[in-house]
């Protein structure tokens, strides 16, 4: 099989599985949040309400395809599919096991950061093209947040790169398999970098406690205000996909990816990814939303200097103790 064919086939398989998990997670989140708040969640449609998703999808597809009269209709239509496209593209470089990966690029981590950074474009376009003040405010907030948190995200992702001395995902994972997972060793930089990476991923995906771009108590529904039906569904889906893929990336570069005893690599990678994904839901239903200025202060005053320091500490560690290939 040529590399192109290989990438195409595995890319399709991985994308399908990820989208399925993201959709199922919406049901899971409802049940889970209901448990946390002593409610029941969906119960009526199918066993334990699992068919609620199908009902929701059918409802969304039946809705009228609304486009505001004064919206920029071309951009308005383009934004939701591109949000999903850019988000899913990141999955191309994530290895789920030694064999289950679409493209093992030499610049894997850089690709992940670069394409992941593009997601802010369609989100902004969605808000701007709606020609609605709440949507525009939401888009402004999304971009401000996206640009700000991009920097500590890149720097904290550099820590495993420095430790493994490679940007290739499979190299980073094999170094961790040979030594230890970067989250526990070297103690300190790896763990803190993971925490920063995780916080920034939450902020990039606009998840609570960083969901000020769609703060429903202030901005109606932020960027998605004017969207209805399946277009809204796509924007929503992109958010879940974003957190799922961020969990997979964190599992790969900080938690040793497919490395683990007793079971095949794929099982471990999926287990780690889902554990991190679950943590995101847990955080979401435990915390409240940050204020805009608190959000910016957290990023510029704490995360940014800390992540810069971590990269230096990691470099010193490699220089004096020597790890990696």
């Amino acid at each position: 099989m040529t590399p192109l064919m290989h990438g195409f086939v595995w890319g399709l398989v991985i994308a399908t599985v990820l989208v399925t998990i993201a959709v199922l997670s919406i049901w899971f989140e409802r049940k889970f949040s209901a448990r946390m708040q002593s409610r029941l969640g969906p119960t009526l449609v199918g066993p334990a309400g699992i068919l609620q998703l199908v009902a929701d999808a059918l409802k969304m597809m039946q809705k009228e395809d609304l486009i505001p009269e004064k919206a920029d209709s071309i951009l308005f239509r383009l934004a939701p599919p591109f949000t999903v496209l850019f988000t899913l593209s990141v999955a191309a470089v994530i290895p789920f096991s030694e064999n289950v990966l679409a493209a093992d690029l030499d610049i894997g981590v850089l690709f992940m950061l670069a394409v992941g950074g593009l997601v802010v474009f369609p989100v902004w376009i969605a808000g701007w093209s709606s020609n609605n003040k709440y949507a525009l405010l939401g888009a402004m907030r999304a971009v401000a947040q996206g640009i700000a948190y991009e920097i500590p995200l890149v720097l904290s992702a550099m820590v495993p790169v420095v430790l493994a001395q490679s940007m290739r995902f499979s190299d980073i994972i094999s170094v961790q398999a040979e030594t230890h997972w970067f989250v526990i060793w070297p103690l300190g930089p790896g763990l803190i970098a993971f925490v920063i990476f995780f916080i920034c991923s939450l902020a990039e995906a606009n998840r609570i406690p960083f969901d000020i771009p769609e703060a429903e108590s202030e901005l109606v529904a932020g960027v998605t205000t004017e969207y209805a039906g399946m277009r809204f569904g796509l924007l929503q889906m992109a958010e879940y996909l974003h957190t799922l893929i961020a969990s997979a990336v964190a599992a790969a570069i900080f938690f040793g990816g497919w490395d683990g005893p007793f079971a095949p690599g794929l099982h471990w990678m999926v287990l780690k990814t889902l554990a991190l994904f679950f943590t995101i839901f847990w955080i979401r239903w435990s915390l409240v939303r940050f204020r805009s200025d608190q959000l910016m202060a957290l990023c510029w005053k704490y995360l940014l200097p800390l992540s810069l320091l971590l990269v230096m500490v990691a470099a010193l560690f490699v220089h004096y103790c020597g790890v990696g290939a």
Binding site: L105, D106, I107, L110, F111, L113, A114, V115, G117, L118, V154
Partner: peptide
């Protein structure tokens, strides 16, 4: 020049 491409995007 894949590195340059990545940096260009980023």
């Amino acid at each position: 020049a894949p590195f340059l491409a990545g940096v260009q995007l980023l």
